[in-house]
């Protein structure tokens, strides 16, 4: 089974700085920082091989990608003690590109993923800052 997803954060990582070709520059360095004990918000990297697969297979993903992403996601939820989509205390994600070499501003980034009409209420309640929650929501859309 090909490993398509590498987790990082909380003092450990499945990847390292030497895996730049597979994880991209950003992903490899996030993994490396996690390994040396620097506080990094937990997350996971989907490899450049998935990108290659995506373009070679008519814009589809490998069959087992979904399972690996879900597993990594649960891993983060456990580390953070919060859940993605939780209406009371939602875990939110950023999604960023990361090629082998930096291509500043060339590709897309999405922040605040996981906000919806219900989770925004939870974010407001937990942070005690309603303005922050709605500002985040409008930035997300």
């Amino acid at each position: 089974m090909t490993k398509w997803v590498y987790t990082f954060g909380d003092g450990a990582a499945e990847g390292d700085a030497g895996m730049r070709n597979l994880l991209g520059g950003k992903g490899a360095n996030l993994a490396e920082m996690s390994r040396v004990g620097v506080p990094v918000p937990p997350g996971f990297t989907i490899t450049t091989e998935v990108c290659t697969y995506y373009y070679e297979n008519n814009h589809t993903y490998p069959a087992d990608l979904k399972e690996q992403v879900m597993s990594a996601l649960h891993d983060i939820e456990e580390k953070m003690g919060r859940k993605f989509g939780d209406e009371n205390d939602p875990l939110l994600f950023s999604v960023r590109s990361g090629a082998r070499v930096s291509m500043p501003g060339m590709m897309d980034t999405v922040l605040n993923l996981g906000l919806n009409d219900k989770t925004v209420l939870g974010l407001a309640k937990r942070s005690g800052n309603e303005k922050f929650a709605y500002d985040s929501y409008r930035r997300f859309i």
Partner: peptide
Amino acid sequence: WGTAVNVQTMVFGNS
């Protein structure tokens, strides 16, 4: 070469 995708817990500097 392709790009990787990094999915990461959001942290807020504006909270």
